[in-house]
Structure formats: C-alpha cells, structure tokens
C-alpha cells in the first residue's frame, strides 16, 4: 500500500470539507483497502468516517425505515425490523461476501464498491474505468462475468453488489450531504450506465458523503425472494441475481410486480414500464416467462457470457414463483 495521510473528522461538515480529488473516505475498508493494495486506488489522504454519528436504524414518520450509512451489513441484515418487514433486503445482504466481511462492510460503502472486473483490478493492463481512454480489454478478452445489458463500447463491467439489487426493487432513496447541503437521490438514478465515461460509477459528487438510505414502507413483505446464482454455493459474486417482489390479487391476477437484476449490468437492472404492463395479468409461470423474455429482449452477449441470458430468464421465473409460494406458505 502507498503511504497516505490520515484524518478522522468528528462531524459530517468536517468530513465534507476535507473531501477532495486526492482523498477517499474509508468506512469498513473492505473494498478501498483491497484496491489500494492493488494500486488501483492511490489516495494521498484517507478520511476515516467511522467516528461520525451515522449508525442508527429508525422507523420514519411515513412507516418506512432510515438506515445510517455506517450501519454494518451484518447489523442491517439481522435488524428485527428489516427481517420482519424487508426480508428481501436481509436475504440479499446475507447472500453476499462472508460473515467477517459483513461485520466490517458499511451500508454506504456497499453502494460504492467498485466492479470486480479482472482488468479493472490489474493496474498493469488498460481499463477505461481505471485509466480513462486506455481501452477495454474485457470486450474481446475474458468476459464471462461481464454485462449483457446497458454496456457500451467503452466498458462492459457489472456492479457487484447484492444489497443494491434489493434496494433497487425496494425503491430506496440515497441521502447525501455535500458542501452545497443535502440532497436525496432515487435509487434508480444513483448508479449510472458506463456510456463514454465508465470511470464514473454513480452520480455522487466528489465532496458528497452518503449519510443514510431511506426505505419507503414495504410494498410487499412475505411475497418477495432474492435468488443469487454463482459458481459456488457461498462466498462468491453473482453471475446473475434477482430481487423479486409480488402482490397477487384475490382473483390471482398480478396487482404489483418488481424485478431487479444483479450481475448483468453496470447498475441494478429494472424496467418499471414493463413491470406496469404486467398488472392484471394472471399470476402464473406463463406470465413470468413472458416478462422475463421481454426484460432480456435487448440483451447483447459477449463471447463468453451468452449463458447469462438463459440463466437470467430462468432465474426471474424461479424467483417470482418462489416469491408467490412464500406468500402462500409463509
């Protein structure tokens, strides 16, 4: 690791004042330190935010939940309110990383973890995300793990988070604090597609600190399921994952449907218009299959990842079927 200067601000204002192009915030450190050891990140200054008062989980006036940015992944997954009212979020978090890492990793850091693309991690090779303009070896290289949706000629990396896939389905909002004050970002607008500027994973400004995540009241409780498919049963990143939520009316028609995909794009993938078009259709396997086909209709595979298209479609059908079964047999 390259040497760096260290500071530990006592207040959010101080932390935001200290931010800058040569600095990085550190929370759990599980992603930043990993990247610093690989020389992918080389900050001159590291700002330790673990002294800030951002560790609270509380119910909001509208019946939602507000989660402080420093709440650990383990604490959040096992929080009583989260287990009872947002089981989709619990399941997604527990499907990620290892128990040790979940004890360390923070809510804010999880949103900002970088891609696990091998070329991004290898400082000796080109990568548009790491060194803008240098090229993308993944396009014609080893791209089994890479994107099938929303990629660009400049970058085919995927966002690796499990938690974020659930947050996309739950329509969370990201509360940030910068030198200009506070703002709230809808989850769908937080992460971005690579386009011509893949070095930017999200819309956060350099001086902005994530202070909390706000969840609206749960749109579905029992009727949800997180399905993660990977190369081994545990402690591996997703090849494809699905966060599915369903509301079924008394006549067995679809009264609400949300599906977010992980492992397939530069951000959790949703199509809200398509979800809406399913309302009123029968809650059956046939409807889920039609939805899956439509959601993947624009998928463009690379040389080694065409299997992800079939995998994603089948995963959607299975996740929705299991979400429905979860409601019928809680």
């Amino acid at each position: 690791m390259m040497p760096f200067a260290y500071s530990k601000p006592d207040s959010i204002e101080q932390a935001v004042q200290q931010a800058g192009p040569d600095a990085r915030f550190i929370a759990g450190g599980t992603n930043l330190l990993d990247l610093m050891k690989e020389n992918v990140e080389r900050p001159a200054r590291v700002i330790d935010i673990t002294g800030l008062p951002l560790r609270e989980v509380r119910t909001t006036a509208n019946g939602g939940l507000q989660i402080g940015a420093l709440v650990s992944n383990a604490e959040l997954a096992w929080h009583l309110d989260v287990e009872a009212r947002y089981p989709l979020l619990s399941q997604a978090i527990l499907a990620g990383a290892s128990p040790q890492l979940r004890n360390m990793a923070s809510t804010g850091g999880n949103l900002l973890q970088r891609t696990r693309c091998h070329y991004f991690y290898d400082a000796a090779v080109p990568c548009n995300k790491r060194a803008p303009g240098s090229g993308c070896p993944a396009r014609d290289g080893l791209n089994r793990q890479h994107a099938i949706l929303g990629a660009s000629e400049h970058c085919v990396a995927v966002h690796p988070s499990d938690m974020c896939v659930a947050l996309a389905a739950l329509e969370a909002r990201v509360l940030v604090h910068g030198r200009q004050g506070e703002r709230e970002i809808p989850f769908a607008d937080f992460h971005r597609l690579p386009g011509a500027t893949p070095e930017r994973d999200n819309c956060l400004a350099e001086d902005e600190l994530i202070v909390a995540i706000a969840l609206p009241p749960p749109p579905f409780v029992a009727c949800s399921h997180y399905l993660k498919l990977r190369d081994r049963a545990s402690y591996a990143f997703a090849l494809v994952s699905v966060a599915a939520g369903l509301v079924v009316a008394d006549d067995n028609s679809i009264a609400g449907l949300r599906v977010a995909l992980g492992g397939v794009a530069h951000k959790p993938w949703r199509d809200v218009g398509l979800e809406r078009s399913m309302l009123g259709r029968p809650a059956t396997r046939e409807s889920y299959a039609a939805f899956a086909d439509a959601l993947l209709r624009d998928a463009r595979p690379l040389a080694h990842n065409a299997f992800k298209i079939t995998l994603a479609k089948n995963a959607i059908i299975r996740a929705l079927t299991q979400a429905q079964a979860a409601e019928e047999h809680p």
Binding site: I26, G29, T30, L33, D48, T50, Q100, L101, N103, M104
Partner: peptide, 13 residues
Amino acid sequence: GRRVNACLTLAIM
C-alpha cells in the same frame, strides 16, 4: 467480539 478480516483492517482505525 466480532469476527473480522485483519488483512482489510487498518490498525489505526
């Protein structure tokens, strides 16, 4: 009391 990976922990923290 909580299990963590010491390789990704800064001593100073």
